[in-house]
């Protein structure tokens, strides 16, 4: 039960973040908005990381930082900035579900590159996501 409440709290946080971004991006460019949100997020997550994982941080291998760099490039100058651009130009109600379909793309990559297999549940879920995206994207 606690896990469910914590998971829903996470969803609430992400959901509220998109709405605050929508309001803020009326006055500020998506690029600047991305930076402001990242500065605040970095301070908080870095503090939490040092509180809970000091030992793991001190033992990080050098190659791990190259992976962090790759992840950072795809996640923030690309993912977060495009997310904020979408919110700013299409609106949060249309952009949020489109961005929320990202597990579909992760699954496509995992199947095509990682050699993972598709099953009935993934197939039905994929059709549902495509149907939902088509409904949203067909609005003008």
């Amino acid at each position: 039960m606690l896990g469910v409440l914590l998971g829903l709290s996470a969803a609430l946080g992400f959901g509220i973040a998109a709405v605050f971004a929508r309001v803020g991006l009326q006055d500020i460019k998506a690029t600047t908005g991305t930076l402001v949100s990242l500065v605040v997020g970095t301070i908080i997550t870095m503090a939490l990381a040092f509180v809970f994982h000091t030992d793991a941080i001190l033992k990080l291998a050098g190659v791990a930082f190259l992976w962090f760099l790759l992840s950072a490039f795809i996640n923030f100058p690309l993912g977060r900035l495009l997310n904020f651009t979408g919110v700013s130009m299409a609106g949060v109600s249309k952009s949020a579900p489109i961005v929320g379909s990202s597990p579909l793309f992760a699954t496509i990559l995992a199947i095509s590159i990682g050699g993972e297999s598709i099953n009935t549940m993934i197939a039905i879920g994929t059709l549902s996501i495509i149907g939902g995206l088509a409904m949203i994207l067909s609005q003008r």
Binding site: T42, M46, L48, L60, L69, N75
Partner: peptide, 8 residues
């Protein structure tokens, strides 16, 4: 945390 710092 580290990827967010690099992204910033």
């Amino acid at each position: 945390a580290f990827s967010m710092a690099m992204g910033t």
